[in-house]
Structures are given as structure tokens and as C-alpha cells.
């Protein structure tokens, strides 16, 4: 409790200092929007002449953009996971695939996903498909690698014990190898999620599109309109979504791994 209060005090002071600097440093609000300006971007009010009345939260722009972005994110992530996990199992199973697909995955995983933007634009134009492509490229390699590694590190004794009880083929894969690699698959899925989120922001910032305005687009237009309160506000939104999604999606798995396997977060 004491530590919590101390942390709270720290953030209050930080916020105060920021507000003070924005008002009195003489820097233009373009370079350093004040916390109150960011607050006004979200929740609106003051000055009918100075700007902002409704606020992005109330007029629906923020909600709408979040919805569009989340749809893209879940679709891209879902496809990435749906391809990555089975493919990782195959590369773990077949030496040839490990040497080929596995090597490609190892290489492409190091490629920042913004680098896919030019190709995506060329191939798919300014479309949802281009967005999807970028997110999938951002997700899939890490998931393949984690799954492949997860399956390879399974102690052979699990497979042997299962086989002496009559487990083989598909049963062995679904009931032994998949759950035995669960800790790695979960951490791969988590890593994939972080990559998907970063990729999508890159895609939305770089690809102007008519079929739906996402958070990244709002950020992009904020910059074009010199609305730095909007830019900073959206950065907060991006942080909060990333944080919450991580907690909501992965905490249950991590709790399960902790309770059942006795594993702690690594």
C-alpha cells in the first residue's frame, strides 16, 4: 500500500511537471501539448472559439477507430496463430521442413514488419488485404519458431510413457506433444501478439485506406493536422490497449501454467 502510494505520488509529480513545462516553458503546444489538452482531446469541453467541444470519446471517433483496429488485429492475429502453430508442429516433425521453412522463419522473424509495407502496397494496393498481410507477416514467424522449439524440447520420456499406454499418431500429437509444449506455445503466442500489435500500427500509419479508420490512421491525421494533443492521447490509447489485451488474453493461460505446472513467468 505504501509502495503504491509512493508510485502514485511519483506519477502525480510527473504529470504536474509536464503540465508546468507545457504552460511556462514557452514551447509551442505543437511541440509539447499539456496533459489538460490531451484530456480535452478525449473528453472535450472549454472554449467554443479556441477549439475542441465534443471530445473524441463522446463523438464516437475513438470508439469507432478502436473497433476497426481491434477487428483487424484479431483477424490478423487469428490467421497468424492459425497458420503458425500447425506449421511449427510440422517443422518440428519433419527435418526437411525444419531446415527450409524453419530457416525462412528464423530469417524473416528478424525483419521489422514495417518493411513489409512497400511490398504489401505493391501487391494488394490500399486494401484491407494489405493490412492483413502485414499483421500476419508480423505474427506468424515468431509463433512458428516458438512452437517448433516447444515441441523439440519435450523430454522424450513423455512420448515414450504415452506410447507404452497405447498413444500414437494423432492422439500422441493432440494429447501429449501439443500440451507438453504449451508453455512455449503460450509465450510464442504472446510474443506474436506483441508483434501483431506493432505491425498493425505500422500498417495503419503507412497505409491510407477508405474501408475503415483505425487508431493508427487517427494518429497519422493527428500529425498532418498538427493536433499533437490527439497524437499524444492516441499514444496512450495504444499503450492501454496493448497492456489490457496482454492481461486479458494471456493472464488466464499463465495462471493455468503456474497452478498446474508450477511454472512462474519467465
Amino acid at each position: 500500500m505504501k509502495q503504491f502510494l509512493a508510485a502514485l505520488a511519483f506519477f502525480a509529480v510527473l504529470l504536474g511537471a509536464w503540465e508546468f513545462a507545457a504552460r511556462h516553458s514557452g514551447a509551442s503546444s505543437l511541440l509539447l501539448p499539456s496533459p489538460t489538452a490531451v484530456w480535452r482531446y478525449f473528453f472535450g469541453s472549454p472554449s467554443p472559439d479556441g477549439g475542441t467541444v465534443g471530445g473524441a470519446v463522446w463523438d464516437g471517433t475513438l470508439g469507432g477507430a478502436t473497433l476497426v483496429t481491434m477487428k483487424r488485429l484479431f483477424l490478423g492475429y487469428g490467421v497468424g496463430i492459425g497458420i503458425g502453430i500447425p506449421l511449427g508442429m510440422l517443422t518440428a516433425r519433419f527435418k526437411f521442413l525444419h531446415n527450409t521453412v524453419g530457416t525462412i522463419a528464423l530469417g524473416l522473424q528478424t525483419l521489422p514488419s514495417v518493411c513489409w509495407v512497400p511490398l504489401a502496397l505493391l501487391w494488394f494496393g490500399q486494401t484491407e488485404t494489405a493490412m492483413l498481410f502485414i499483421v500476419v507477416m508480423g505474427t506468424v514467424w515468431a509463433v512458428i519458431l516458438a512452437t517448433d522449439h516447444g515441441i523439440r524440447q519435450i523430454p522424450p520420456i513423455y512420448r515414450e510413457a504415452a506410447s507404452t499406454m497405447g498413444s500414437k499418431g494423432l492422439h500422441l500429437w493432440l494429447k501429449v506433444l501439443a500440451p507438453a509444449s504449451l508453455p512455449h506455445i503460450v509465450s510464442g503466442a504472446k510474443q506474436g501478439w506483441a508483434f501483431a500489435w506493432r505491425s498493425l500500427m505500422a500498417a495503419e500509419i503507412y497505409i491510407t485506406i477508405l474501408s475503415g479508420m483505425g487508431i493508427g490512421h487517427l494518429l497519422h491525421y493527428g500529425r498532418e493536422l498538427h493536433a499533437m494533443d490527439q497524437v499524444v492521447g492516441l499514444m496512450f490509447v495504444i499503450i492501454v490497449i496493448g497492456f489490457l489485451a496482454d492481461k486479458i488474453l494471456f493472464s488466464p493461460w499463465e495462471r493455468f501454467l503456474h497452478r498446474r505446472w508450477g511454472l512462474t513467468n519467465s
Partner: peptide, 11 residues
């Protein structure tokens, strides 16, 4: 078979 390591499934 029963092994020296218990080989129980932790999941």
C-alpha cells in the same frame, strides 16, 4: 513402463 523419472504429465 515405469521410469526412474516419474514421467508424469504436468498438464
Amino acid at each position: 513402463v515405469m521410469f526412474q523419472e516419474h514421467a508424469l504429465f504436468p498438464w
